[in-house]
Design a protein around this nucleic acid. Structure first.
Lengths: 233, 233
DNA sequence: CCACTTCAGGTTGACTTGACCACAAGTAGC
DNA sequence: GCTACTTGTGGTCAAGTCAACCTGAAGTGG
């Protein structure tokens, strides 16, 4: 009994990696994520979240970080545990039971351009996921997007998408891409400045076809926890 | 390599079970939770969260539910995943690596009175944990309390501590016990009634030494997710 | 019948938020 | 060089939210 239990249970770590890219048609900034085409059963040839079995030598977050390296070859600007999925019947056709601990991550807006898309890895807009995905990964993606949208409203994680210096309009476009709705520039400015998460660099952007915006940088943040632990809706 | 990895990794499910009990000295309502005294190494004789290895036949939430049965012999009014803890060094003295998926639960204010305290199970106020606990359970308890306090402010889970019918003062005392601070009765009433999570039964409490309060019941809630999935601070 | 306690409901002022307006400061086209 | 255009910057105003506080309602106990 005990032997059978241990034998047929696999612990895996998967990661939902978010990046911002311009929509190829409209040119507007939208959320994208990388998917991996499975080359083995179960769910052979279906798209799945990047990840793999947990190596005994690594912490959970380290395993997620390694997945990021293999998939995007860049360091995440933000990495956070999402949820552990472990229902008995979540992979009915798999030979063993898989419990997945899922992380989600943000990579910088410019960094992912240098990514050499490895074989079987493809980026997709979150609104156009080529489903159904393997396992319960559709549910996981939907939940990760919900978490990201919720978190952006009470935490300065959106900065992670931007380079060192940025204008408030840049930041606003990130928020608009994540929340998928337009924000009033004036109100957005007031809100961001009041919460003290950005610092004025004193410099302005140059070469714009209009009034040059001030440049800001992220203020150093005080984290309450040593771990990055987060909450559910 | 692979064999060693599988062999030395154990997946466990633990549960932080909250109940409200009067403080034995002041008589005020406070948060309590059950701890189990370990009878084996590692951390022998130290207090730990109830739980155990994951049985291959059960979902994660089912495993947490079973832990509740063994520990408190009552059904939880609320059960929700907290976090997965899996650092390599979280149990340095243990022979194998343990990854714990931790749930937290609420049991009704009256129900836990009928609990037959099993051997090695003892309830403790969350502010007087007999630490240090086994493994990283001190950290887990602290995080679970934080999650509960955060969640009570935007979700009607506090109702879970109360019987079918209750007065707004009852509900307010639950909030005060969880948040550990006094709330203005008048503002609390307005806030609760405006969010529509309670229904007026039309009846009033009797036998009080003052104006009899109206009795309310919880309104049926609409959950966004089939699973109970939650968010982190 | 009066004192006391708690419930119930209303008022007020500080603060937040969204909608909107006006000006600032650059480029592009003529 | 002038004007149109675009986008950043800053302010106003009204609606809504929230904490502090006040007053009366309705019961029990002396």
């Amino acid at each position: 009994m005990s032997a059978e239990t241990e034998q047929h249970l696999v612990l895996a770590v998967s990661t939902v990696i978010f990046s911002l890219r311009p929509d190829p048609e409209t040119g507007e900034l939208t959320l994208w994520l990388p998917l991996v085409r499975r080359i083995r059963e179960p769910f052979k040839n279906r798209w799945a979240l990047p990840g793999g079995p947990l190596d005994n030598a690594h912490d959970l977050a380290e395993a997620a970080n390694n997945t990021m390296q293999h998939t995007t070859q860049v360091q995440p600007r933000h990495l956070e545990q999402l949820y552990a999925f472990g229902d008995v019947d979540r992979s009915p056709e798999a030979p063993e039971r898989v419990v997945s601990i899922v992380y989600w991550a943000l990579v910088g807006q410019d960094e992912d351009l240098q990514v050499v898309d490895a074989e079987n890895v493809e980026w997709h807009p979150v609104e156009e996921i080529p489903g159904p995905l393997a396992f319960d990964h559709d549910l996981i993606v939907r939940y990760a997007v919900d978490r990201l949208r919720a978190k952006v409203t009470y935490s300065p994680i959106a900065h992670a998408f931007l380079p060192e210096e940025f204008s408030l309009a840049d930041l606003r476009r990130v928020y608009e891409a994540i929340l998928n709705r337009a924000l009033d520039p004036s109100n957005f400015r007031r809100q961001i400045l009041s919460q003290g998460t950005v610092q004025d660099t004193g410099r302005r952007m140059t070469g714009t076809a209009h009034r040059p915006p001030k440049l800001y940088r992220s203020a150093p943040q005080s984290s309450r926890y040593a771990l990055t632990i987060e909450e559910n809706p």
